[in-house]
């Protein structure tokens, strides 16, 4: 039975967790600012610079081959979302080692470090994304968003997916150290099969049913579609419902795995 006392405990738990997460976000931001020049702006220069170099290289190679979308927006959707995904996966796997000293303070639980990271990374990449969008807008002077709610929904669902993955990788890498070593081996081929440089419709027909399982492909295609009605997605292959289902199921599985291992994670 949920009596008053139990309810108070639950509320208190949430307040403690909120405090811990806000402290971790503060620490994360301060640390990043302290490690670069030009203060808070410097934090964005890093990822933004990487994006711009990628964009320049690939837009030269690719040209505008009638994908139905500005080539910069086409590539930025892929590269920003993929880098965001990669960052959270790698940092999630490293989280236990990197944050070991933080569990010194009893209220800090391993999951809080992943939540704080997810908040910081998702906002960081959202800002980077918007800077690129703004740049394209100033250059082309045309309305860019065809379906803004779809953009928000896809970004949010994908953030939840990345969080879940980071959480699972944190637990997994704590038990099996070699996971840290094989993650880069998976990341590289993933670049190629996740629709970062080619749209789903440009792939051979027989590959498409397999490729569309990938939530990365789903998210990237949906975001491209949210920019322009001319960027066509097949409703049978790409759907926001599928992305949300995938994300929420991953979330429940990851929370279940974490719940069962929290005490073991805190053991030294």
């Amino acid at each position: 039975m949920l009596n008053k006392r139990r309810l108070d405990e639950i509320i208190e738990g949430f307040i403690i967790q909120r405090n811990v997460i806000s402290a971790l976000v503060y620490r994360e931001l301060k640390t990043r600012v302290s490690q670069v020049k030009f203060g808070i702006l410097g934090v964005f220069f890093g990822p933004l610079g990487v994006m711009l170099i990628f964009l320049l290289i690939f837009s030269i190679f690719k040209g505008d081959r009638g994908v139905g979308l500005n080539i910069f927006l086409f590539l930025a959707s892929g590269i920003v979302m993929f880098t965001f995904f990669q960052d959270l996966a790698v940092r999630g796997a490293n989280a236990m080692q990197a944050n070991e000293a933080l569990f010194f303070y009893r209220p800090v639980k391993p999951i809080d470090t992943i939540i704080a990271r997810t908040i910081v990374e998702s906002l960081l990449y959202l800002i980077v994304f918007f800077v690129i969008i703004l740049g394209v807008f100033l250059y082309k002077e045309e309305i860019i968003f065809y379906d803004f709610p779809l953009f928000v929904s896809a970004y949010l669902a994908f953030t939840i997916f990345c969080f879940s993955l980071g959480l699972v990788l944190m637990v997994a890498a704590h038990f099996y150290n070699w996971i840290l070593q094989i993650i880069p081996l998976f990341i590289r081929p993933l670049w190629l099969i996740s629709g970062v440089f080619v749209g789903l419709r440009q792939l051979p027909q027989w590959v498409r049913p397999y490729a569309s399982w990938n939530p990365l492909v789903q998210c990237i295609e949906l975001i491209r579609h949210s920019f322009s009605i001319n960027y066509i997605i097949e409703p049978t292959e790409v759907s926001i419902i599928y992305l949300w289902q995938f994300s929420l199921i991953s979330l429940f599985i990851s929370l279940w795995i974490y719940q069962n291992n929290e005490l073991v994670l805190l053991k030294r």
Binding site: R27, T31, S34, F104, Y105, V108
Partner: peptide, 28 residues
């Protein structure tokens, strides 16, 4: 927490920032 152990302090942050971090955890 065990008083006297240097734990949870981020080296690249100042004492002020580190103290703020811990205070945020405990001071609601």
């Amino acid at each position: 927490w065990p008083v006297g152990l240097v734990g949870g302090f981020q080296g690249s942050l100042s004492a002020r920032e580190n103290v703020t971090f811990v205070s945020k955890i405990y001071a609601s």
